[in-house]
């Protein structure tokens, strides 16, 4: 399959997958491009699954650099805080809270559950997810069920915590 066509069709999806995984769009784009560069080197026979697998690995490596990322987040946080407020600050603030809660809820999942969920959201079927994650096909339903349940529960919990903080203020 022509990789340039795969690039055109799946680059955005790959960036979204990575963005949801690591929460930094610029870095997600960087890693997505890196995955395609590697695909050019390896010429995989099933490029889409291969790309997402490589991307998941790259994202996992990112996660391992925990100390560096903490510095990064501090840095970005400092920049965000100094930006002027956008129009409609209340709406923007609320949305930002939702996004942060979703990111945190995702981060609380086990790595495999999170990746299965994100791959499903990117349109992967059970066969592709099992191939990308090295799981048996029969376990994908259970993995996704667990991931969805825990993700929603984590989000609700974060939302409750947020409400409690608001009340406390």
């Amino acid at each position: 399959m022509d990789l340039s066509q795969v690039y055109r069709e799946h680059y955005r999806s790959l960036v979204r997958f990575l963005y949801r995984r690591i929460g930094d769009q610029a870095r997600a784009e960087d890693l997505a491009q890196e995955a395609f560069v590697r695909a050019l080197e390896h010429q995989p026979s099933r490029p889409r699954a291969w790309l997402f697998t490589v991307a998941a690995n790259l994202a996992r490596d990112e996660g391992r650099r925990a100390a560096v990322r903490r510095r990064h987040l501090t840095l970005i946080k400092a920049e965000v805080e100094t930006r002027p407020p956008e129009p409609g600050p209340e709406v923007a603030l609320e949305r930002r809270d939702v996004v942060r809660r979703v990111q945190t809820a995702l981060a609380r999942l086990a790595e495999r559950d999170r990746e299965a969920l994100l791959l499903w959201e990117e349109g992967f079927n059970y066969d592709e997810i099992s191939e990308a994650l090295g799981l048996s096909r029969g376990s994908i339903g259970t993995t996704l069920a667990r991931a969805r349940t825990r993700f929603a529960a984590a989000y609700e919990e974060l939302q409750r915590e947020g409400s409690d903080e608001d009340v406390a203020r």
């Binding site: 340039s4 690039y7 055109r8 680059y11 955005r12 960036v15 979204r16 963005y19 949801r20 769009q25 997600a28 784009e29 491009q33 395609f36 560069v37 050019l40 949305r95 939702v98 996004v99 979703v102 990111q103 809820a105 995702l106 969920l117 959201e121 969805r148 993700f151 929603a152 989000y155």
Partner: peptide, 24 residues
């Protein structure tokens, strides 16, 4: 879950030209 995941959309994604990937 689908609703929540929809909240986690990246901003506009610029797709670099394929030749840039090839050049890298």
């Amino acid at each position: 879950v689908s609703e929540l995941m929809a909240e986690l959309e990246p901003g506009p994604i610029q797709v670099p030209a394929w030749r840039e990937i090839e050049a890298r």
